[in-house]
Amino acid sequence: MRSRIDDWSKWVLWIAIYSCLNSYSLNAICADFTFTAIPDQDTAGLQERFGKIADYLAKELKVPVKYIPVKSYSASVQAFKNNEVQLAWFGGLSGVQARLAVMHSKAIAQGKEDPNFITYFIANTNTGLSFTECFPFNIVDKTFTFGAKGSTSGRLMPEYFIQKALGKPPREVFKRVGFSGDHSKTLALVQSGSYQVGVINYKVWQKAVSAGQVDPKRLQVIWRTPSYPDYNWTIRGDVDRTYGQGFSQAVQQALIQLKAPEILNSFPRSSFISADNEMYQPILETAIELGIIRQ
């Protein structure tokens, strides 16, 4: 019995030594071009769906490409900042934050719909609110939900318009303010009456309407915000040094030429067009005004 324990400990030691060597060699060759993306809805099975883009990019760029899934906008900014990913599909706000955190990084592409993005204010019909062209001042003292805290269409822009119209931050305007976490949830919460009013990305709204998830007897759009720039592909400035001259341009080309509908649908966008940092200046200014980005 004694000798058995001795044998066991010998094995444990060997495995330990082996694993140390193993990990060392594996770490040395870890330089895949990595990207991340979170769609604004339907976040299940990301790895499978976005794996296809990784394959596409690998073919076009002739380097190994890896996709890593993240849970939130802030996590994708962190990964970008930490150089765990070199390319990311950001919201307007998270893109600005990422480019502030990583010097020389640049927005290279955006969805065809993104230069003129819109947020819808939606309300449960039991509030009696109905559609207006100008800002719906009668939402005061209702219960209200944003989407995710770090979202452009679900938080930043609606908060900006509320503050501009009413001159007060949302927590002083509404009876209760929540953050649903994402657009689909906002829709569900307002439809069920948990919140009377909410804000939602117009792409998500359109998709939900066509999928029959919206009951017009219970849920209604009450206001459309003015348009603003939103989602974008942002790449780190140091990729040309790592992967060769002209690499970021090659990535931009590959994205713009992307035609496969099953890939574009994951975002969901009809196609990608080129973009630059300058386009997102309004977002930066708005974020500063709201104190989300500090001055």
């Binding site: 495995i15 330990a16 082996y18 694993s19």
Partner: peptide, 9 residues
């Protein structure tokens, strides 16, 4: 040991 091996990858 197994866990650390998997982790170290």
């Amino acid at each position: 040991v197994g866990a650390f091996t998997l982790l170290s990858r």
